[in-house]
């Protein structure tokens, strides 16, 4: 699913989309960044109500290509700047975390894999 389609589904405002086309296969909903760091996040959308610079930083570290800020949270200029520097798409949505998650699930996005699985994948890449 591409970023524009995600934006349509969550009735969002697309604040930034990187030039490179990105296709997301899964999503993860959390306000706890410590938990985001525990899972495999390749091609995964982060759905969150936590609107801080560290949300963007956590996404960067985890290779997350797109963040949907739910519950009408408004992204600050420094956050948007950091997202642009790191090529992370940013969507604001007035829907709740539950509704954003439900709609994306209904449209075929999957849950993330446990990081345990990704370590096997990493070994295969070596």
């Amino acid at each position: 699913m591409n970023i524009e389609r995600v934006n349509e589904i969550v009735e969002g405002t697309l604040l930034f989309a990187p030039d490179a086309a990105c296709s997301c296969e899964s999503a993860f909903a959390s306000d706890l960044m410590s938990d985001v760091l525990r899972y495999y996040m390749e091609n995964t959308i982060l759905i969150t109500g936590l609107c801080t610079l560290q949300t963007i930083r956590t996404a960067e570290i985890s290779n997350i290509p797109c963040i949907v800020f739910a519950r009408g949270k408004q992204v600050s200029d420094p956050m948007l700047q950091l997202a642009k520097e790191n090529g992370i798409a940013i969507i604001e949505s007035g829907l709740t975390l539950f509704e954003v998650s439900g709609r994306l699930y209904q449209h075929g996005l999957k849950s993330v894999q446990e990081y345990l699985h990704s370590k096997k994948e990493e070994d295969r890449q070596r």
């Binding site: 495999y40 996040m41 390749e42 560290q54 930083r57 956590t58 960067e60 570290i61 985890s62 290779n63 790191n86 990704s118 370590k119 994948e121 990493e122 890449q125 070596r126």
Partner: peptide, 23 residues
Amino acid sequence: GGSASSAVRKTLKQFNIAPLLVR
């Protein structure tokens, strides 16, 4: 907070290291 880790990550990405290992 996180800017040092971000800088190291960007350095590692320039080398031929598996993306999941960089992560």
